[in-house]
Design a protein around this nucleic acid. Structure first.
Lengths: 122, 122
DNA sequence: CGGTATCCTGCTGGATACTG
DNA sequence: CAGTATCCAGCAGGATACCG
């Protein structure tokens, strides 16, 4: 089974991979984590800007996620001492480490939509 | 703002990207989809093999996901007419299209674990 | 082996209103 | 603008038992 040899890795490394996959899913779990990370990495810094950039999100969810993301070092919250109404959320290196995953997912989503469109035209 | 120019895309394409991202999240949502896809793409075909390859999953969740994945064309369920106890799940092209996403997530998970280990050693 | 059937809990997330 | 506070529903998911 030459093909199997090439495709399959040994059981041990496979177990590592499932675990790694599950870890990642855990960290970015939920509907909103990745879209928020994406938005901030795209340059949005203000609460309302982030909110507006993500269709369907509510202030409550955004608030909650941002708070937890700050705790986890995913974003930095910077409050202007002069006017507490001016807050900025900055992305961190940790935040940026999800870039490739997000890119792949965007790519997949676009491809997916293209295929749906095509099959509709028939 | 040359740097911003390079980093940021225009609003219209950004909106497309969020949408694509959200579509993808919707399709692979939940704890189990990707691990199951991964397992099957790794060559596991039998129910119990898939189950054993994914830590923490229950027969109920696996059963449910497989059923829905079959409906969505993510896997093909092949039943041996001679012995109904011999069933095989086969991956499809659609299933394989998640390969890159899974790869990136495994990569991230491994890197993440390495960093956790490192910071513990200090 | 390859699943179903029940029962149950909690958390994710939505709606809405309110605040400094 | 930048959030909090409440209230509430639904369903993802866990535990356990059972079946052909």
């Amino acid at each position: 089974m030459k093909e199997a040899q090439a495709v399959l890795s040994n059981p041990r490394s496979q177990a590592d991979e499932v675990r790694a996959l599950q870890d990642t899913i855990y960290v970015i779990g939920g509907k909103w984590r990745l879209p928020i990370i994406n938005s901030i990495c795209n340059g949005n810094r203000r609460f309302r800007d982030i909110e507006r950039s993500i269709p369907g999100i509510t202030t409550r969810m955004l608030s909650r996620e941002l708070k937890e993301m700050e705790l986890n070092g995913l974003v930095k919250r910077v409050e202007d001492p002069n006017s507490p109404m001016k807050v900025e959320y900055m992305s961190t290196e940790y935040c940026k480490s999800f870039g490739d995953i997000i890119l792949e997912m965007i790519r997949w989503g676009k491809e997916h939509r293209r295929k749906i469109m095509k099959s509709r035209q028939k």
